[in-house]
């Protein structure tokens, strides 16, 4: 698997898109920091971008890479390699390459603006870590979609729909449900609703460290115990890990049975 990972990674590392992605983040961070020398403000703005763009890029890259490397996959399938290794290797290759673009694209400007001497270094690390998690989650989801759809156009369509759903529509339905059932105790419901969407989860995780957590804890005892303690942080993190593991597990299972 590591050989495949290595080759997928190199393959992407020389692809123009990785550089565009990297340069985009580099530019974005520099502009943000230039306009507003306050690291902590820049992190909040960046959070909004990361939460929307990282999943989108992860989804598109994942689907694109799968379809683009189909012939190559066929070539590998005939080699004495375990078939699950091929897909997991490719998946990790894409996810790692995207993560590295993200990591350096955001990291270099912030480091140059004195991140390590500032108090927000932990917040920034949380932002990066959640960004990496989102990359892994959405690339895995995209791989799942691509594995289950032979038709490229369909696969792309579903992938974009999935992103749209999790990034926007889910929150809309969530909000409608909350408003409709406002007579009932909703604190557990809303926590669970939040945990079930990786984007919401990631956002919460960042907000928890951005000092706005008190605003969340304001709502009631359940929220207070969740957001005001490490409990919320740990649970959110575990959920993110589960969000990576489940799609990866499905890649493993599907690739075991799929015909090529």
């Amino acid at each position: 698997m590591f050989k495949i990972l290595k080759y997928s990674f190199y393959d992407l590392a020389r692809s123009r898109w990785s550089y565009i992605y990297f340069l985009f983040y580099l530019l974005l961070s520099f502009v943000l920091l230039f306009l507003n020398n306050d690291l902590s403000k820049a992190i909040i703005t960046l959070m909004n971008v990361v939460l929307i763009l990282v999943p989108l890029i992860g989804t598109i890259f994942g689907v694109m890479y799968y379809y683009n490397s189909q012939e190559f996959t066929t070539l590998l399938m005939a080699q004495p390699i375990k078939r699950q290794s091929i897909f997991l290797g490719q998946y990790f290759g894409v996810a790692c390459s995207l993560s590295i673009s993200l990591f350096f694209g955001l990291g270099i400007p912030f480091a140059m603006y004195g991140l390590f001497q500032s108090a927000v270094v932990l917040n920034f690390i949380i932002l990066l870590v959640t960004g990496v998690f989102l990359t892994f989650i959405f690339t895995a989801l995209a791989y799942n979609i691509a594995l289950s759809n032979l038709n490229k156009i369909k696969g792309f369509g579903y992938a974009i729909l999935l992103w749209l759903f999790l990034a926007v529509i889910y929150d809309g339905l969530f909000l409608i449900a909350l408003v409709m059932f406002q007579e009932y105790p909703l604190d557990n419901f809303s926590l669970i609703g939040m945990l079930l969407n990786p984007i919401d989860l990631a956002r919460t995780l960042i907000i928890l460290k951005l000092d706005i957590s008190a605003l969340l804890g304001y709502t009631g005892a359940v929220f207070k115990s969740f957001f005001d303690t490490n409990k919320g942080f740990i649970i959110s993190f575990l959920m993110l890990i589960i969000w990576v593991l489940l799609p990866v597990l499905r890649i493993y299972l599907v690739s075991k049975k799929k015909d090529f």
Binding site: N48, D171, G172
Partner: peptide, 21 residues
């Protein structure tokens, strides 16, 4: 206004959907 009526909606703070709304 929504958070006022449904305090639990605070979990959606800074969501893209909220910005759109």
């Amino acid at each position: 206004y929504l958070v006022n009526r449904t305090p639990e909606a605070i979990v959606l703070l800074r969501s893209l959907f909220i910005d759109i709304v």
